[in-house]
Write a protein that binds this DNA or RNA. Structure first.
Lengths: 152, 152
DNA sequence: TATTGTTATACTCTATAACTATA
DNA sequence: TATAGTTATAGAGTATAACAATA
């Protein structure tokens, strides 16, 4: 192996066109962040999607599946296996809605309540890490504001 | 159907815990942005991934597959069908590398060059739209800086 | 022994259509 | 007729393992 040629061959690519693109930057950051989240939450056996459901059901007990799914941007068809998994782990519960017998009202079980407390603490640590990386609370608020402007 | 009950049932959920999360905000913005990009580039029949490959090959002709794939965060196994599709459309070309007969050097075809010019114009308009949404060039630079801090 | 391209494979997310039971 | 939940299914994107040719 010719080392000289090898070094020449390893020259950095010109990335500029992609690095400067909002779409690619956001995609890269999102994918890295999601991977970090998943590693952090692997001990709990919870995906970002399941985390979102647990959190929303915790703060909005009694809402129907479609409402929780909509708030998370998940289609109701894809929500079913998600809530099934949580129910199988006895973290959430479907109860027949008294007002509308088509729909299920979602609740946390006592085990679910306890679980949510734990993962909320983990999430708080995760968000604190993000804040540190960004350079403080102001930077974090600025990022969230900018992201929300994109998402209109 | 009881309208009063219906209206009560449609109360907004408490979203705060998720809206305030960097992970969920970035995920939502990324997914909306990707969808917008895909709609915009549907007439060209190009996915974000293919767009990235074309752009990188255009600015870095002669690089091998692994280098282009790495720069895009795509694994070399998943890069194969991607570059196959572009080659089938006669936009890119694999040439045997003279220095290393294991690797393929990637080039745009003349048709590829012309195509890249077109989609670059479309991308410029897309990015300009993002900039407008964000509130100007400074806001855009701020967002890219913040995102890059997250992706370390 | 390590690397390049490749195939095969699997798993997650997401998207759509159609069914049932209720409204 | 419209909606809630469900099923089935298909398509992206991504992940790993293994192989042949070459270094």
């Amino acid at each position: 192996m010719d080392t000289t040629l090898e070094i020449i061959g390893q020259e950095e690519l010109d990335n500029a066109s992609i690095e400067r693109s909002v779409l690619f930057q956001i995609k890269r950051s999102q994918s890295l962040l999601a991977r970090r989240f998943q590693m952090r939450f692997a001990p709990f056996g919870v995906t970002p999607g399941e985390y979102g459901v647990l959190l929303l059901v915790a703060t909005n007990p009694g809402r129907k599946q479609t409402e929780i799914a909509d708030a998370l941007g998940i289609q109701r068809a894809n929500f079913v296996p998600l809530i099934n998994a949580l129910e199988r782990r006895l973290l959430t519960e479907r109860r027949p809605s008294p007002q509308d017998r088509r729909s299920n009202a979602l609740y946390l079980t006592p085990a679910g309540e306890e679980f949510v407390e734990q993962i909320c603490q983990a999430e708080a640590r995760f968000e604190a890490e993000c804040t540190a990386r960004l350079g403080g609370r102001e930077a974090r608020e600025a990022l969230i504001l900018l992201l929300s402007r994109l998402a209109i």
